[in-house]
Simulated assay, not measured.
Amino acid sequence: MKVLVPVKRVVDYNVKVRVKADETDVDLANVKMSMNPFDEIAVEEAVRLKEKGIVTEVVAVTCGLAACQDTLRSAMAMGADRGILIESSIELQPLAVAKLLKSICEMEAPSMVICGKQAIDDDSNQTGQMLAALLDWPQATFASKVELAGDKIIVTREIDGGLETLSMALPAVVTTDLRLNEPRYATLPNIMKAKKKPLDTIAAESLGVDTAPRLKTIKVSEPPRRAGGVKVADVADLLNKLRNEAKVI
């Protein structure tokens, strides 16, 4: 069984993102980049399935600039067998990424696609769902547990009211939630081995997919600064402020 894991290069989650002076985008100059945390969870789950002997090959795929090869190498250091870079110099929005991934799925014929539920840069939470729709595959989003039983996959997903368990036929698309697993740290030997694993580069234009942006960013701004708190003398003073100043009681 082959599993395809899309990964995305994003600003490292430990970095404080700053907005450009002209408010057209965030400033990426000299900013540390890393793999999207939800995608790390997806890679970890695919590798665990391989370690159980259920999956035979894990293929990591990403879309973007040549610098995205580092993200693929990180995935391969975690245990992915090979990587595919769909190289493109233009902004790729969720629908464009889903179309490119559809083309790769048709080429690779995986039994399952496991991807992060969303990227921490745009928070769109759309690519997995769009990919499933384009492929006409069943999908399970926000997965917190994944089990394979024969030709079916059983996914426990997190919903507002608790947990929901789905059984689906393969091939299928699964998007990962935070509580699915704890991603491993890549060891130095595995990082060195990842440099020798195969990494193929495909030009996005060669896939015959319309990747033109359909959305235009009008403005990017930082959230308003929170006002400082105040100290109160006692509970009575707190209740008085809540009642007369905050108007919440």
Rank of each mutant, 00 (worst) to 15 (best):
W137C: 06
N36H: 10
I120P: 14
V61Y: 00
G150L: 08
V43H: 02
Q126N: 05
R18K: 14
K20E: 12
I104P: 12
V220D: 03
A203S: 15
T156W: 03
R18Y: 10
L180N: 02
A246K: 11
N181P: 06
V58E: 01
A109G: 02
A29N: 13
E57V: 01
E87D: 07
T71Q: 04
P198Y: 12
K2R: 14
T71E: 03
E57Y: 00
D22Q: 05
D22I: 04
Y13S: 13
N244Q: 13
E45K: 08
E23V: 15
D22G: 09
P183M: 14
L134N: 06
G116C: 07
S124G: 06
G150A: 10
T176P: 05
G208T: 11
I153F: 00
K145W: 02
E164C: 12
E57K: 07
T62M: 02
A109F: 09
D22N: 11
A42V: 10
A236R: 14
C68R: 09
V146P: 03
V5D: 01
M78T: 03
I104M: 11
N14G: 05
L148F: 14
N244G: 08
A143N: 04
E245K: 13
A80S: 08
K16H: 11
D123K: 11
V17C: 11
I41L: 01
I54L: 14
V17I: 15
G116N: 09
G116K: 07
L170C: 05
L72T: 01
P183D: 14
A169E: 12
I54A: 09
T71H: 05
V235R: 13
T141W: 00
D234R: 05
T187R: 15
L4Q: 01
L72N: 00
P37D: 12
K247W: 06
P198T: 12
A133P: 01
D234T: 05
R225K: 15
A96N: 04
A172F: 01
G79M: 00
A96T: 05
R73I: 06
V19I: 13
A60E: 01
I249L: 15
E164F: 11
L135I: 07
V47Y: 00
D210F: 09
R9I: 08
K193A: 15
L4F: 05
V248K: 06
A227K: 13
E23N: 15
Y185A: 10
P6Y: 01
E205G: 10
